[in-house]
């Protein structure tokens, strides 16, 4: 991809939900460009439309009107099958609730995207790639653990490993620290920052906490379905530095 073409480009995006007789305008003609390698945080109160934006960016939902170009390709009007392939290949999700399969090992959870890829991947290759992804997030030794045997932070790291398995163009994170304590939150943010720095991955992170938003390189504020501010973050927090100052974790020694 050429640097000039933005990874994400949305034009006059509108999303209207019909709630009985009332039409809820979640997004009102939003336009936005995100360049490769940006770490964008989207903030706003609940009901501001940021989650709707996230679903559309993640191809989990389709806009009522407007266009969405992902890697220069319009994905707002694709069929369900095509959209599934886009999700599989180009988008990685990290959710607030982790969304791991229960009673399934960390390794098998990470493997999941490879099972649904358009090209068949052998079982040994699936395993090798999933293992490598787990090691990258520091969970190589816990590949056999089920989600209920892992801490929140560990579960979120498994989810990140899964999201990155297919080397997606964008990583979408929806309140990734919402269920985590502050120290674990910082750890997760550290992973995101290093991903941006080391691998140049484009990250869109949604949060309602300004503290968390401060880790991004660009902060977009939402209110009532419109962008109220969009500015580069000049006072960026660095998770790595903060981690060093925090006391030794108790959880990680377990």
């Amino acid at each position: 991809m050429t640097p000039n073409v933005p990874v994400i480009s949305i034009k006059k995006l509108t999303k209207t939900y019909q709630m009985g007789d009332v039409a809820v305008h979640a997004l009102r003609s939003v336009s936005l460009d995100i360049q490769a390698g940006e770490f964008v945080t989207v903030v706003g109160p609940s009901g501001s439309g940021k989650s709707t934006l996230m679903h559309i960016l993640g191809c989990l939902d389709q806009p009522t009107s407007g266009q969405y170009f992902l890697d220069g390709k319009d994905v707002s009007r694709l069929s369900d099958d095509e959209v599934s392939t886009v999700r599989n290949k180009k988008i990685g999700f990290v959710f607030q609730g982790f969304n791991l399969l229960t009673r399934t090992s960390a390794l098998e959870n990470v493997e999941l995207p490879l099972l649904y890829g358009p090209d068949p991947v052998s079982a040994t290759e699936r395993r090798a790639r999933a293992m490598a992804a787990l090691e990258a997030v520091g969970l190589g030794s816990r590949y056999e653990h089920h989600p209920n045997q892992l801490s929140g932070g560990q579960q979120q790291r498994v989810a990140i490993a899964r999201a990155l398995l297919n080397n997606p163009s964008i990583l979408l994170a929806d309140e990734p620290t919402g269920n985590l304590d502050s120290r674990t939150s910082v750890e997760v943010m550290d992973i995101f920052q290093s991903l941006k720095k080391e691998r140049g991955i484009t990250i869109v992170l949604i949060t309602h906490e300004p503290d968390v938003a401060a880790y991004g390189s660009r902060i977009i504020s939402f209110r009532d379905g419109v962008i109220t501010s969009d500015e580069l973050n000049t006072r960026r927090r660095t998770a790595r530095g903060e981690l060093a100052e925090l006391p030794e974790p108790l959880e990680e020694s377990a």
Binding site: S84, N88, F93, N99, L112, L115, R162
Partner: peptide, 16 residues
Amino acid sequence: TKEIGIRRAVGAKAQD
């Protein structure tokens, strides 16, 4: 439902 959602999110098609 949630499991189905997770699978769909990581790229499972309806027919899968």
